[in-house]
Simulated assay, not measured.
Amino acid sequence: MATRKTPASAKNPNLHFVTGSDEAEVRIKAKGLVAELAPTDAGEFGLEIIEAPADTVDCSVDMVESTLQAVLTLPFFGGGKLVWMKGVTFLKDSVQGRSEAVQESLEKLLKVLEEGLPQGITLLISAPEPDKRKSFYKSLCSLATTTLCDKPDFGFNGTEEDLIDWVVRRCRERGVKIEPQAAVVLTTRVGANTGQLDAELAKLVTSAGASTTIPESLVRDLVPFTRAGGIFDLSDAINKRNLPLCLDTLAQLRRQGENTIGILLAAIVPTVRNLLLAKDLMERHRLKPPSQANYFTSELNRLRPEEIAHLPRKKDGGINSYSIGLAAMNSGLFDRDHLVSAFLACRDANQKLLSGQASDETLLTQLLVRIVAKNPSNSIVGQKSIPAR
């Protein structure tokens, strides 16, 4: 997350604009400015908040008009007053933002701002995810002390490590720590939505308590189970050779209506493949298991290009070193021959699913037992399938 302020030269010192693509950070920075700018001697009369859903053109116009009235109304008991135009949504590229009525109202507000605010009046405008092409946005940035809060780049070139590092930093800012695996589970379940991540972190911090460490178990209990999170949880359970967690996660995915072939190809096959690839590399090159997945990147970089040419790739063409690192962390739980057998079992299971030779639930259950159980030949006996509910 990038937070920066524009130069203060030629700016109205009583006009502040907090904006950017990171909605959570915009909200946090705006609240901090309110605490800093609101007159301490005016009590509740020193702060006037203009807030509206602004989900229609009329609501958006009313919000601008209310802000104008508040700015032009002097404090009742003298002194100063802070007007906070909170959470403006019609600066986005939306129906409300493109409305001529809204544009006319914004032009009226801009004219007042260009002429200068009345003495003792301070205006704070917070607006997440603005359309930076709009003339009002550009004019406001030139007039106000502007704080930009943009999301980190989790797009095409973003990596899992970037998102996990962001979560660890936010926990540090809140005065707590988070277990490495807890950060992985959290980012996998929520994704790159920093606003949702911040909301989940607030919930976790409240539950864990201040000046403590957020454990993985708490994240699994409190953060909602999603499709992407379920795929990761199943992969993680296979990596850790945790059969009960494998079967529980499979049951959850089936209850959510996930396709059996999809579970096999999205979670089971890639995990077994990565375990086999990591095991092979570590045995041939005598590599040690990393303490964290991202540490394995440096080990891979030391190898010749032809030694790692077969490894799975990300969308940008780079090696998916994080997933290989996760497998390398747990490679000691499996021997190479077992992983070869498990990979061939995945192939056979895929063929049986496509030909309809057996029940989907039974096939996946038996496959997971064969991959994860320490004594699969005995464990399969009497093993019940996971029904879809």
Rank of each mutant, 00 (worst) to 15 (best):
F90K: 01
I121L: 05
V167Y: 01
I50Q: 02
Q357H: 09
D335H: 04
S207D: 14
M1T: 12
E129M: 13
E51L: 10
K374F: 00
L123Y: 03
S323Q: 14
P290R: 08
G20L: 03
L303D: 09
Q351V: 07
P128W: 02
N320M: 11
K288W: 10
L222P: 07
P387C: 13
H16V: 12
A327E: 11
D162L: 02
I121V: 10
P130K: 09
T122D: 12
P290M: 08
N274H: 08
C171P: 12
L367G: 14
D131R: 00
D221G: 10
L253F: 04
A345E: 01
C171I: 09
Y322G: 07
G116D: 04
K352S: 13
A278T: 14
P118L: 10
E100H: 06
Q103M: 02
E25F: 01
S105K: 00
P224C: 04
F296G: 05
V205K: 00
R98L: 05
K92T: 13
G120T: 06
E51W: 08
E65K: 06
H338D: 10
Q103W: 00
R27S: 14
K11W: 11
N12L: 12
D93W: 02
I319S: 09
Q351R: 08
D337W: 03
M85L: 05
R389C: 11
G332N: 14
I231R: 02
S207V: 15
A35R: 03
L367H: 06
T213A: 05
P270S: 10
G80D: 15
G116V: 07
G43E: 12
T213R: 03
V185K: 03
R227A: 09
A24E: 02
G318L: 08
N242P: 13
M85N: 07
R313P: 12
P13H: 02
L247I: 13
L91M: 11
F225L: 10
C246V: 14
L117E: 08
K288H: 13
K132C: 07
Q96I: 00
R273K: 14
K29L: 15
L344A: 14
N294G: 09
K5Q: 12
L243I: 06
K92L: 08
